[in-house]
Design a protein around this nucleic acid. Structure first.
Length: 482
RNA sequence: GGCCCGUUGGUCAAGGGGUUAAGACGACGCCCUUUCACGGCGUAAUCAUGGGUUCAAUUCCCGUACGGGUCACCA
């Protein structure tokens, strides 16, 4: 049995769409699961879309994600070149070979005639298709036009009737009528191959055994098969994967700023979490485990778990997975990611940032949200007295005022401002007053932060803010409530 | 429009002729906790629809609706 070889063949657009990344992931996993090779081929023949530095985006993203290729433009390999623009010269002879076999033919129709034919077809409501005007030209006619230098293209000679069946590993056998298939162009007027033709030839020449690609190619697969058959080449295994959608109707799109790997990185997601999440989008593991390392994914992956319908991208789920990854991080590593965001919100210098990081870690789902979580530390925000009212704590503005007044002298009396000492002092107060913890601690939190939700409780806030600031904020609270 | 593919809770989805139709996220409730979060425990679903086939269909077949894809000398 041949060694498994898969390929990822992106166009360098300067942008790594999340759907493409997922295709790359599955492609990589299928190769590795079978002990095979993962090949990177850059399809850069669309001059119109060429973007400076775009290939680097592909390299960086793939490397970040751990999708390391065994052969590719930068590292070479036995079946290079791996950049499609450098392969352009080699296709014509394969097309000529097909002409020789009667599987393809010269077509001398010019653009004008083609447009005309199409216009008529559209007007009469039939599917636009080449009318096969040049399909049966005699040898002499062809000779003559060739000698006269008439521009030509080469078209595939699709059978006029009968059916063609191809097999997809996920969808099974799919059969279509040959009569619905166009005599597609293989070689263009400029002598260059069309995408579909180049793809078939490249995949064969590179020994690709499993073609993993987006579902949009499902419809053109019959033509691919016809081509493989015409050459007498072995057809690779096809695995068509469904799209990732924004909602039921719309694909994830560039303009919404949430469709690329880079977008997600900017939003504060971890690479591992993104990979883990997109693996789960449109693929279901056998067991109940959901968090996977790359090695585990390779181990667990099974084509049968792939979904045949589009999946909607759910950022809430991604957040949750991201949070899980963040919580598992060792504190120093967490701090490495979080510190820039912490520093963004905290400018005062009497704060122990590491302590903040520790408090923040179990409460972080997105690094980018850190600043707003801790913006109360530098300066107490304006807040509404309504915050003092908490039904479960049974607090209201009145008893909060009383509590703050009780708290003030107690905290002022704390000499050594440590968590333990503050804790002891406050709980002695709670015992003395014979009230529930929340009666004292909820007002304290609100007065200290001006927020209902904070990293850490009232006591932690006291420690972070320091004695002077804490006292000042309590006084402010008393003032507001009076 | 022709052709191809699909349709299980708000989302990702398991399952696949007889089941209490998994699990996760989200939501809600409770417990734990000095609040939030974390953690723990719960609650919520006539499997798009109409016909068959069958003792029995969410699972098989056909139609309908809805959604997606594709119909270039673009990749």
């Amino acid at each position: 049995m041949n060694k498994v070889r898969t390929r990822f063949a992106p166009s360098p657009t300067g942008y790594m769409h999340i759907g493409n990344l997922r295709t790359a992931l599955f492609t990589y996993i299928i190769a590795k699961k079978n002990g095979g090779d993962f090949i990177l081929r850059i399809e850069d023949t669309d001059q119109g879309r060429l973007v400076e530095g775009a290939t680097d985006v592909i390299y960086e993203t793939l490397r970040d994600c751990g999708l390391n290729w065994d052969e590719g433009p930068d590292i070479g390999g036995p079946v290079g070149p791996y950049v499609q623009s450098e392969r352009m010269g080699m296709f014509k002879k394969y097309a000529l070979d097909l002409v020789e076999k009667g599987e393809a033919y010269y077509c001398f129709c010019n653009k004008e005639r083609l447009d005309e034919v199409r216009a008529i077809q559209e007007a009469s409501g039939i599917m636009p298709m080449y009318d096969r005007h040049c399909r049966d030209l005699s040898k002499e006619e062809i000779e003559e036009k060739l000698n006269a230098g008439v521009p030509y293209i080469i078209r595939q000679r699709v059978p006029k009737d009968g059916t063609i069946t191809f097999h997809d590993e996920l969808y099974g056998d799919i059969t279509v009528e040959c009569s619905t298939l166009d005599d597609q162009v293989l070689i263009k007027t400029d002598g260059m191959p069309t995408y579909n033709f180049a793809n078939v030839v490249d995949d064969h020449l590179m020994g690709i055994t499993h073609v993993v690609r987006g579902n949009e190619y499902l419809s053109s697969s019959p033509k691919y098969n016809l081509l493989y058959n015409a050459f007498g080449w072995e057809v690779p295994k096809y695995i068509h994967v469904e799209h990732i959608m924004k909602d039921k109707q719309h694909k994830l799109s560039k303009r919404d700023g949430d469709a690329s790997y880079q977008d997600l990185m900017e939003k504060g997601y971890l690479t591992e979490a993104v990979i883990n999440y997109i693996a789960l989008l449109g693929w279901a593991p056998k067991g109940e485990q959901e968090i996977f390392t790359m090695d585990e994914l390779i181990e667990e992956f099974d084509i049968n778990g792939l979904s045949k319908s589009p999946a909607i991208f759910d950022s809430a789920k991604l957040r949750a997975i991201n949070g899980e990854y963040i919580r598992k991080l060792p504190l120093d590593e967490y701090a490495g990611y979080a510190m820039p965001y912490i520093k963004q919100a905290i400018k005062r210098e009497d704060i122990d940032l590491m302590e903040i990081a520790e408090l923040l870690q179990p409460r972080t789902e997105l690094f980018t949200e850190i600043p707003e979580q801790i913006d109360f530390i530098d300066s107490l925000p304006e807040y509404d007295n309504a915050l003092y009212c908490h039904k479960k704590m049974k607090t209201n503005e009145e008893n909060s005022l009383t509590s703050l007044k009780e708290i003030l002298p107690v905290l002022e009396a704390v000499e050594d401002w440590t968590k333990d000492n503050i804790h002891t002092a406050l709980f002695e107060l709670i015992a003395k007053l014979e009230v529930k913890n929340g009666i004292i601690l909820w007002p304290l939190r609100v007065a200290a932060s001006g927020k209902a939700f904070t990293p850490g409780g009232g006591i932690e806030l006291c420690v972070i803010l320091g004695k002077d600031d804490t006292i000042a904020r309590i006084k402010k609270g008393i003032e507001k409530l009076s």
